[in-house]
Nucleic acid binder design. Structure first.
Lengths: 208, 208, 208, 208
DNA sequence: CATGAATGAGGGTTCATTCAT
DNA sequence: AATGAATGAACCCTCATTCAT
């Protein structure tokens, strides 16, 4: 891919995440990417197709997770959950801007193409995690749980944290814009919390 | 408050939730509310102040929860958690449009006034739930948990479900626009899931 | 109708006639009419609807002709043809800009609405003239002629003259921009020519 | 001339006739001709020069008529008129797209070069026909007529018919896009009409 | 000789807001 | 108190053209 194209995508990602799709003008993007205004139409056709290209470009960021997990056939179900959490949290924090776009800005897009792409991403995530839970249940390690809502709790917790950055900066007394420190403090906490939460949830025998 | 004012606020809520703040024009709102275009500036000053008015108007929707809980001093900590979940899920589903605005559209607003309002709402929610957990811990009923992230899991789970309506319609095989059936099926499931999740999480002794 | 609206229509007529629809920008029109650019959308909705409004506004300019003719029931068929020519030539020269738009610019418009309006105008003209010819034939004054093509000759001759202004300025050695002199010289010539042409054409017995 | 050059001219003619000069973009032309966008500037210099090239390329289409007529010195003046009509109608219908461009799209072009070319074409047509009429008058076969306006009636009638295709399709009940049938029906009618019209007009003694 | 990449200018339209009434 | 008219700014997109390769 050409440098400019990638540069535009980067700028679009930053601005869409920060100001939303409707709140970002193609002038903003062109200005941020330091390219001519007409280049956006030239490369992508339209503002909406630019978004679609961005989604396609970044959507693979969670795709590799399940394959990484599949490699380790020796892991126990709980070890798999732990690894799943490690992988997901890392991936999402490494792609926090795109994750922000997907979770907060895509839902209002009215384009059917965008809606379809988003549904696919969510569905894929759901299926990936379901597989692991079902596997644990087959091995009699996990109890009976609501599969979809358990997934919702995992994803929802991560999303909640990433979308309320300002709040957690305040809670942890971290000065703004020191993102490195923020991540260093928060990520381990988040991983530990999710692992504990799921360990308790999945092992608990709800019928006793 | 005059009828027209309330009517405008209702329309704004519907449209902001559906299309976002930037995606909704004052013409849309005026058209939907069947009022003159100039009325919006006339009553509220500006589009942004209209949003602020809307937030102020609706923000109290969770305020009553903690007071309701405080009445029942006889409840056990787990019963309080259960009741908290019941109250939150009901409140959020009854105010799903405003909840959608708060969780997905407000975060991108650049106005400091709006940001402050939003932070207050989130902070208030956090504090409300923290109180109950701390109370349970004092009574040696709840184990040691990450307070803030436990709250994030509760709120995140609910938000995840409400913001992925389309996905859950598909999962539960409910025909679109039959919102009544959707709520009837999903709300009990969600409450049960959250109660189980928290019961396990809070009672589990993570140090053993 | 408001002054501004009429002013915009006038400017649009002048510019469309001179430069065509595609060759005229709404900025041109706004500048010529000395109104704000957004007024065009405000009053007419779009550039194309402005054209449609212009057509509707001016289309009646030939409508009155047949009624004027109908009043004089005493006229002979040839006198009616003569009067028809007088009326048409006068009307078209008095509305030369709009006539120019209809004959040279509307045919390429791709909008179905515009196409329909144009077809109606042409069809009306055709029917008006046909009535008179048929009446003359019934009275055994006119011979058998191809009705539609006879009308085409009348309209085509006038259009040819109006659309080749520059050529006829040269032929008659009239300095440019002296439109008054041009009309004074050309109109009588054109009327006489058409009357002679039709007198010969309609009275000639083509079967002998 | 290279194949590509000719191909571009063909595409330009088709599109200019259909959508006008301003309504056709060089992208349209490049796309229709299946050549690179930059080729058009490369070969012709600019869009306007492309039009000039097209005119030059096609303008000779009426030039041969007078020469063909000149060959037959044996013909009577009326036979010459008849032949003139046959030749003109055929030529115009065989070059209907270019004729359309000349009569409806060139008049609005503001370029002096284009205006000059167009004036030359019209002037040439005028002179060609004048010669024949003058010859007939010298031979005391034709009466006194307005030369220029007689030519205007000939050209105007043909143009009127070709520019109102849709109308005549409707009148003759011919299904759209069956151009072959349309031509087969209309051309003989038009020739006959014009011959009758001119025979009557030219032979009629307007002073008696 | 031919072309993909790039650009400045301008296209039509919609925006939130204001102002005279 | 309420509104139709009006506006300047900004929107996204396409234009004809150029230039390095």
């Amino acid at each position: 891919m050409s440098d400019k194209r990638a540069h535009i995508l980067d700028s679009a990602e930053i601005l869409f995440a920060e100001k939303g799709f409707d709140g970002t003008s193609v002038r903003d993007i062109a200005g941020h990417a330091n390219v001519n205004l007409a280049m956006i139409s030239y490369y992508f056709g339209s503002k909406e197709k630019l978004l679609a290209s961005l989604i396609e470009h970044r959507a693979g960021y969670t795709r590799g997770i399940i394959e990484e997990l599949a490699k380790d056939e020796s892991l126990t179900p709980f070890e798999k959950i732990d690894k799943l959490i490690d992988l997901y949290v890392d991936k999402i924090f490494n792609n926090s801007r795109f994750h922000c776009i997907v979770t907060t800005h895509l839902p209002t897009m009215q384009s059917d193409e965008i809606k379809g792409m988003m549904a696919d991403i969510k569905f894929m995530n759901l299926e990936q995690i379901k597989k692991i839970i079902i596997d644990g249940q087959k091995k009699k390690v996990f109890g009976k749980v609501d599969m979809e809502l358990t997934v919702a709790s995992i994803m929802g917790t991560i999303t909640q944290v990433t979308s309320s950055k300002a709040l957690y900066y305040r809670i942890f007394n971290i000065e703004k814009s020191n993102e490195e420190l923020y991540n260093k403090k928060l990520i381990p906490k988040l991983k530990t919390h999710l692992k504990q939460l799921l360990r308790a949830h999945l092992s608990f025998n709800h019928h006793e």
